[in-house]
């Protein structure tokens, strides 16, 4: 079977720049990511976080990253500037002004969101990233070439690179404690240590229900937005907050997965290689037709 009309139509749309206007983003699904309906999620209730940064310490311990004694993590001076995950910290907590700029500040833990339609998985040309059906987005360093396209693609700007490593620099990011959870049956290290139960680990679908209930029960406490429910097609990590998320350093994102346009075009071009072969045949025909035009 050759290319069908639907594919041609999709190609025309994407080429013409209209694919992004597709009104039904949820119908589309990347071929790279079959998703388990029972896949994991993590609900982060930022209204509970006290900024103790124990999660940062636990994460470093779990992933054997350069660290310091737990006591040093209570130093609040780090909140003076906005921090981002780096090759030695898969997660960091930042402080923001509370509702109306007064009262208790809001602390927000940042790490890989483990997207349902991960851009990093979609763009990696050697498949160094993959999405586990159960949720985590994992990275195989041995495949990686170090092109850093994943960092360009990630809408949350999460993957961090070991620029200082000359011989074997790799991309670093949160693993969702995939090994720890599946092999040892424990909670992810950050959720395990958290004294305030900021994080709830569980089935993503259950967490969404729980989040909606919390919003319904405390409509004054929460803004009616579960960040990650729909953002770029949905993420495993979900957030609740008392102030709009753009005030908490979250990017404002639409509901369409960012890899949709690219993958639609790629699939249309590579489906049975019809466009390249058609172009090859056309040029061959032109060459034949014009063969006698020599002066």
């Amino acid at each position: 079977m050759g290319i069908n009309r639907r594919d041609l139509f999709k190609l025309a749309l994407a080429g013409g720049g209209a694919a992004v206007l597709d009104p039904s983003p949820n119908v589309w699904s990347s071929t790279a990511a079959p998703l388990d309906p029972d896949r994991w999620g993590m609900l982060v209730d930022t209204t509970r976080c006290i900024g103790c940064r124990n999660c940062e310490w636990a994460c470093k311990e779990q992933n054997q990253l350069p660290s310091a004694p737990l006591a040093q993590f209570s130093d609040a001076a780090v909140f003076e500037s906005l921090r981002r995950p780096d090759p030695t910290s898969y997660t960091v907590v930042n402080r923001f002004a509370g509702p109306d700029g007064a009262g208790r500040p809001v602390y927000v833990k940042v790490q890989c969101m483990h997207c349902d339609h991960p851009a990093c998985v979609s763009v990696c040309l050697v498949g160094a990233f993959h999405k586990e059906a159960i949720g985590p987005v994992e990275y195989d360093a041995w495949k990686c070439m170090g092109c850093r396209y994943c960092m360009v693609a990630c809408p949350f700007q999460i993957p961090a690179y070991e620029y200082a490593n000359a011989f074997n620099p790799v991309v670093r990011k949160c693993t969702f404690c995939f090994e720890r959870v599946t092999r040892e049956g424990k909670l992810p290290a950050c959720a395990h240590i958290c004294p305030e139960e900021v994080m709830t680990f569980g089935r993503r679908s259950d967490l969404l229900k729980a989040a909606r209930e919390r919003i319904a029960r405390h409509p004054k406490k929460y803004i009616p937005h579960i960040y990650g429910e729909h953002e770029i097609g949905g993420t495993a990590w979900l957030y609740l907050a008392s102030v709009p998320f753009e005030q908490l350093g979250f990017p404002v994102l639409g509901h369409t997965p960012v890899n949709k346009v690219n993958e639609t075009v790629q699939h249309a071009i590579f489906k049975h290689f019809v466009p390249p072969i058609a172009l090859y045949s056309f040029l061959g025909a032109m060459m034949w037709i014009h063969r006698d035009q020599d002066e």
Binding site: C124, L125, G127, Y149
Partner: peptide, 18 residues
């Protein structure tokens, strides 16, 4: 690892970079 894209086991056709 620049040669990795020629290994069929690593082909990742969703990537424009591929």
């Amino acid at each position: 690892n620049i040669w990795h894209p020629i290994l069929p086991s690593m082909w990742q056709g969703n990537s424009a970079l591929f």
